[in-house]
Design a protein around this nucleic acid. Structure first.
Lengths: 317, 317
DNA sequence: CTGAAAGCGCTTACAG
DNA sequence: CTGAAAGCGCTTACAG
C-alpha cells in the first residue's frame, strides 16, 4: 500500500500542503504538528513520490547514462562512479548499454526523454552519436561526454589522453627504445606519443590501427616498443608478438592503457597507463549536476599515471 | 523548449484530451484531426512526459536493477540483457551498483522507491539483502532475484546451478579423475558436484571456500581435479597450482564457471561451464514485466553448458 | 502567520 | 459520438 501526503493529511486532519511543508521542516509549521507528521510518515514508511514533485518542479532527479557494450570492466567502473555521485544527490541513474546501431541508440535516448531525464552522460564518441543526439540537443538537455575527447559541441570529462600518450612514450624512451609502433585509435594519445618521440629526436614510429597490421613489422623486427591503445589491445599484441617468436619484454616491450583488473595478473603483468576510471564517473556526474543547476563550465581532463610492470624492459643492444 | 499536449491543443484549438486520444489513435477522434495532431507532434518533436502519464496510470515504466560491484563482465552482460528487454517494453532501467554496505543498499533502494519503480531486479543473494528489502516488500513491489538461487520469498532467474555442478564433475569423471576439490560458495553447484561424484562411486572431495585453503592439498597432491566457483576463481587456483609446482592440465585439471571473455584467452584456456548471462537478463526482465502486469509465476532455471578447453585432461596414472 | 487553491502533464470516467 | 472536468501526488504562490 502506497502512502501519500494526502493520506497523512486526512489522518491528522490538516491540509496536504501542511504535511509537505512539515516534512521539509518549513518554519511556518508549528513543531508539534511537525513531529506528529514525521512520526506518522515514519510509521507508514512514507517515501515521496517523485512524479508529483517532478511535475511540479519541472525536474526529474533522473540522469541517463549511455554506453557501448564493453567487456573488461571499463564502463562498469565509470557507471559505479556516476551512480555513487548521483545517489548522494538523490538522483536516479537510467542506464542503457547499446550497440552501435543508430536506431537502438535513438530509441534509448527517446526513453531517457520520456522518463524526463535532467541530463545525460554519454560514454561514446560524438562522431558515432551525432544523428541520435538531435533530440537531446533540440531540447537543450545538459549532456556530458565521458572518457572521450570527441564530444562535439558538448562538454567532456576524460583522461588527459595527450599526457597519457606522452607518459607511455617517455617510459619506453627512457628505457632506451628507439623504434616504436603507436596505435592511432585515440588521436590525442597518438599525438602524445609523437610529441615525446619527436622531442627525443627519434625516428617516426610505425602507426597502426588494428593490431594485425603490426605483424609484418614484428616479423621484420622493425620495432622494439609498442604503445597499445588499451590493455585489451595489449593482450592481442602480446599474442601476435608471441606468434612472431618474440618474447615480452626481452624482445619487445608493450605498454598498455587503462589499467584494467587483468593487467596486473602474472599472465600479463602489463606496464600501463592508469586511467582514473572511478574518478571519471564521479567527476562527470558532479559536472552534470552543476550544469543542471546552473550553466557554464569547461571541459575537464584528469591525470593519467604510469604503472611499470613486466611488459617493458630495455631493448637488446 | 519542452513540448506538451496542452501546447499542441492550444495551437490546434482543440482540447488536451483530444490530443492525447489522437496520439494514441483512439477511434473517437476524426482522422483529419488525428493527422493534424500527429504532424504537429512530429514537427515539434513531442515526447510524452512520463510524469503525467505515470501519475495517472499509477505506473512508472521504470525498473530498478541492483547489483554488486563486479569486475570481469558478468553483471554488465546481465545489465545489457535486462536493458534491451526493458527498452522494448518502453521501460527505463535504473541501475545501481552497490557495495555490500547495508546502508548504501538501503539508500539505493530508497531512490528506486522515490522514482517509483514498478519492479526491481536484484543480482545478489537474499541473505545479504534481507534487511534493506523490508521497504520493497512492505510496498509489495514485484522483485526478482537473478543469477542467484538464494532469493528468500521472491522469484529468481538463474542458471541451473545443480545441473552445472553435475556437468563440471561429470566431465572430470569421464576424463578418469578420482580425487576432487570442490568449492562451496554456491551450495547448489556443490550439491551438483557431490551428486555426480557419489553416483560414480568415487571418494568424497575436498571442499574449500577460499582458494588459499587448497594449498596444502595441492602440495600433497591429494587432488587431480578442481571444480572452481568461477572463472575468476580459476585464475587464482591456477596461480596457486603453479606455485605448488603443478602444471595445468598435465598435473591438475581445473574447471571454471561462467565462461567470461577471458576464459578463452590462450593464457587461460579454461574448460568451463557456460552461463547464459545475456539470457538471464532478458528472462529476468520479461518475468518482471509479467509480474508487474499480472501476478503469479514460478522460478526459472536456465540451462548451463560445458565448454571443453585446455585446462582439463586425463589424470596421470 | 496560516491554510486552501492552483497547477505541473497526462488520461480516464463522465456529462452533454 | 464529442468535449470538458476531475484527479493522480506534490509544491508554490497567493488569499485570508
Amino acid at each position: 500500500m502506497r502512502m501519500t501526503i494526502k493520506k497523512i493529511a486526512v489522518e491528522l486532519n490538516i491540509s496536504p500542503a501542511a504535511v509537505s511543508l512539515a516534512l521539509r521542516d518549513d518554519p511556518r509549521i508549528p513543531d508539534c504538528t511537525k513531529s506528529k507528521v514525521k512520526k506518522l510518515a515514519d510509521e507508514w514508511a512514507y517515501v515521496p513520490n517523485n512524479f508529483g514533485r517532478g511535475l511540479q518542479a519541472g525536474k526529474s532527479c533522473l540522469a541517463g547514462y549511455l554506453a557501448n557494450s564493453f567487456t573488461g570492466s571499463f564502463y562498469d567502473i565509470i557507471l559505479q562512479g556516476i551512480g555513487e555521485t548521483a545517489a548522494v544527490a538523490n538522483y536516479g541513474l537510467l542506464a542503457a548499454i547499446t550497440s552501435y546501431d543508430p536506431d537502438i541508440i535513438a530509441s534509448r535516448l527517446r526513453i531517457f526523454l520520456e522518463k524526463n531525464v535532467d541530463g545525460v552522460i554519454i560514454a561514446d564518441t560524438y562522431s558515432n552519436m551525432s544523428s541520435a543526439m538531435k533530440m537531446i540537443e533540440f531540447r537543450g538537455i545538459p549532456t556530458i561526454f565521458c572518457s572521450t575527447q570527441d564530444s562535439g559541441p558538448h562538454l567532456h570529462v576524460a583522461t588527459d589522453n595527450f599526457a597519457g600518450g606522452q607518459l607511455a612514450a617517455r617510459h619506453l624512451i627512457e628505457l632506451g627504445h628507439k623504434y616504436f609502433a603507436c596505435c592511432s585509435v585515440e588521436p590525442d594519445r597518438l599525438r602524445g606519443n609523437l610529441d615525446a618521440i619527436k622531442k627525443a629526436g627519434l625516428p617516426s614510429p610505425v602507426i597502426f590501427k588494428k593490431s594485425e597490421e603490426l605483424t609484418p613489422a614484428l616479423k621484420k623486427k622493425e620495432v622494439t616498443g609498442i604503445i597499445a591503445y588499451s590493455d585489451m589491445q595489449a593482450i592481442k599484441l602480446k599474442h601476435l608478438a608471441n606468434c612472431a617468436g618474440l618474447k615480452i619484454p626481452e624482445d619487445i616491450s608493450i605498454v598498455g592503457f587503462d589499467d584494467l583488473w587483468f593487467a596486473q595478473l602474472e599472465e600479463f603483468n602489463f606496464t600501463t597507463i592508469i586511467q582514473p576510471k572511478d574518478e571519471i564517473g564521479r567527476v562527470a556526474m558532479s559536472l552534470l549536476l552543476k550544469l543542471i543547476a546552473a550553466g557554464d563550465y569547461g571541459n575537464i581532463l584528469l591525470k593519467p599515471e604510469l604503472i611499470v610492470r613486466k611488459s617493458t624492459a630495455a631493448p637488446k643492444l
